[in-house]
Simulated assay, not measured.
Amino acid sequence: MTTAIAKFAHLQIPLEDVVKATDNFADDNIIGRGGLGRVYKGQLQRSGELIKISALRLDRKHGGGVVEFWTEVSMLSDLKHPNIVSIVGFCDEQHEKIIVTTYEAKNGSLKEHLSNPNLTWTQRLKISVDVARALSYLHYNEGRGYGVIHLNINSSTILLDENWEPKLSGFKVSIKQSLNRMNQVILSEPIGTIGYVDPEIEKTKGVTYKSDIYSFGVVLFEILCGRKAFVPNDANRLLAPLAIYHYEKKMLKEIIHPALWNQMSPHSLKRYSKVAYSCINGERRNRMDTNNIVNELEDFQLQQVQRLNLVRPIFFFTFALMLLLYFFF
């Protein structure tokens, strides 16, 4: 562990600074509770600048979490992407282990807004594209010299900033892999959150980057349907098999969020759902590649924007004409 601390020494933050930043871990500053512990918001002086931060404080009552702590620190220290949370530093002293990142969750997580009727189809499509870009960066970026398999893609680890831009978080179980071996199985127990876990893990006894693709496909259907991947007391507890059934029966309209139906063209729905369906295919080899997903989503995001730009002038022209008719005839 001494080696790890030395490697990341430039990221160390004194405990007293974190305590001050979070007002001594005040309950009012709690913004989340995860598997590792509580997350606090705060303001930290860093290089003469006051920045807004999130501080994940490891819960040591039950032991464990140390491996996950250093995994997250290691991953975030290497990752630089507009749609991935940015690390500020960490604290490792007086039996405290705290990961400090920039505060990216002004609008909470995507999970909190899945059923929000005010989150438009255009916004949802942009979130989908941006998360896909983050995944492509993790899987293929040659500048790092290795790929990253996230293994915890879900709507809770996708944070939304003040502009509704998504920021991917939750790297505590991520795995580094050689770029030329991303498709090879890494032996592993099923990892992730219920409802998002690649069913192929049990069959192959391991994961590949396509395990992330499966989880992302579930998120795409969450975005489309406005419901969570797993609803404990529901007859259809898991969204993935429900989505597969309705897609194959051409009955997606029955499960799409009703507020979205009139905002999307049939062509947009067809292409988006085709990508999402491919991602959650039961066999990894039939799932779309990350870069192809990005290309597809970007393409019909552009079509959606063009459609809006066409519809708006027609709407305003019609509205103006109706006003003229009302006042002068």
Rank of each mutant, 00 (worst) to 15 (best):
H257N: 13
K228V: 05
S265V: 04
D92C: 11
Y196V: 10
D23C: 03
Y146Q: 14
G108T: 05
L58I: 05
K176C: 05
I213T: 13
L302E: 15
H139T: 03
Y326F: 12
I280Y: 07
L36G: 12
R144D: 02
Y140L: 13
D92S: 14
V129S: 09
E162Y: 01
L179N: 03
D212C: 09
A105H: 09
S278I: 06
N262I: 11
G282T: 07
V311A: 15
G170D: 05
Y103I: 04
E296Y: 05
I175M: 14
S47E: 13
L151D: 05
W121A: 10
E104M: 12
F316D: 07
Q177W: 04
R33Y: 07
S169N: 08
I51F: 01
I127F: 04
V67F: 02
L310C: 13
M264L: 13
S215L: 00
F216W: 05
I186V: 14
Q306Y: 05
E142P: 00
V173G: 06
Y277F: 13
I314A: 15
I314G: 11
I31G: 00
L36N: 09
Y103M: 02
T2C: 11
K106S: 14
S215C: 01
R284G: 07
N286K: 13
V207Y: 03
L220H: 02
S128A: 15
V73A: 06
G192T: 11
M251V: 03
V73N: 08
P199F: 00
L324A: 10
R133S: 06
R227W: 02
H139N: 02
R227H: 04
N281D: 11
I153C: 05
L36Y: 04
D17N: 14
E202P: 07
K167M: 09
Y140G: 07
E248I: 02
K205F: 12
K111L: 12
H81D: 10
R285N: 14
R284V: 12
R60C: 06
L56H: 09
I31S: 04
M182G: 09
S278Y: 07
L119E: 08
M322H: 10
Y140M: 11
N262E: 15
D299M: 12
Y214N: 00
I99W: 05
Y245R: 12
L138K: 02
L44I: 05
S47H: 12
H10P: 01
G143S: 13
T204W: 08
G65K: 10
K172R: 14
N183L: 11
